[in-house]
């Protein structure tokens, strides 16, 4: 019973740290996926009074991925089908040229402003439509969500670390007796603390497995899939060995650091 209690105290602390960490990772992945989604659907429209050199225009800023000229034929036909060929040709010549600027990533509001300024340096450009108002609100909301999750995860980690430090005193007390006795019979430090390290490793592995399989279960749940589908993204909650490796690495680092701290601060008492 005492042994289970010893295990539980560290396992619970490690689980809360790993959960906070993985939640932060998943949030970051979701936001990145959503940003990718936004960027693929997002484009700036540049209006010019004469034909522009697309290759030259592409070099305006590194953020530009591609530039396509917008075909106005369909739009003209929609305006009036009664126009004859001659008038349509005339209209085409008098109409400004429209260019769709596709970006590499979803830009920050400041990046949009910077890009617009650079594009306007071309005297032929008369207007730039950035659709900022509709996209900016969603993006800012997303950033706010990310910040809230980051702060929340950080707070959980800080509180759990404080709890672990408190746990350290209990661990010191419960392991001190055995380490003292073993030391009195000539056990080297590594041997007298072997149980402690075994406990630390077992707890780290168990907590990593628990968190890993919990996220794996959540990932497979229909309601989660539906949630992501509703905002048009697909997010991996836990990737195979990579995420488990990170979890195990973090859990081992914490639990082994704790064990090392106990061993270092241990003083023989008879």
């Amino acid at each position: 019973m005492r042994s289970i209690k010893n295990h539980l105290s560290l396992i619970l602390a490690l689980i809360s740290i790993l959960f906070a960490m993985q939640t932060y990772i998943v949030t970051k992945r979701s936001i990145d996926a959503y940003k990718q989604n936004l960027s693929s659907n997002y484009a700036i429209v540049v209006v010019s009074n004469r034909t522009l050199d697309i290759n030259k225009l592409k070099q305006t800023d590194k953020i530009i991925k591609d530039i396509q000229q917008i075909n106005v034929d369909k739009s003209i036909k929609k305006i009036d089908s009664t126009l004859d060929e001659k008038n349509i040709e005339f209209l085409k010549l008098t109409l400004p040229k429209f260019y769709k600027v596709i970006l590499k990533k979803y830009p920050l509001p400041s990046e949009i402003e910077k890009l617009k300024k650079k594009l306007f340096e071309n005297k032929s450009v008369t207007k730039i439509e950035d659709f900022k108002s509709s996209y900016e609100q969603t993006y800012k909301l997303l950033l706010l969500f990310y910040d809230v999750v980051s702060v929340f995860s950080f707070l959980i980690v800080v509180i759990t670390v404080l709890l672990i430090l408190k746990e350290l005193r209990i661990w010191q007390f419960s392991h001190k007796e055995r380490m003292n006795i073993m030391g009195l019979f000539g056990a080297p430090r590594w041997l007298s603390s072997a149980v402690l390290f075994r406990l630390a490793i077992v707890d780290a592995v168990l907590s990593s497995l628990l968190v890993y399989f919990s996220f794996l279960y959540i990932q497979g749940a229909d309601f989660i899939k539906e949630q992501f589908e509703s905002i048009g993204i697909s997010v991996t909650l836990v990737s195979g060995f990579e995420d488990f490796g990170v979890m195990l690495g973090v859990a081992l680092s914490i639990s082994l650091a704790l064990a090392v701290l106990i061993v270092i601060t241990h003083k023989e008492e008879v």
């Binding site: 030391g183 009195l184 019979f185 000539g186 056990a187 080297p188």
Partner: peptide, 10 residues
């Protein structure tokens, strides 16, 4: 000291 203690019974 550990070596000595290995040969003692306390």
């Amino acid at each position: 000291l550990n070596l000595l203690r290995k040969h003692l019974g306390i």
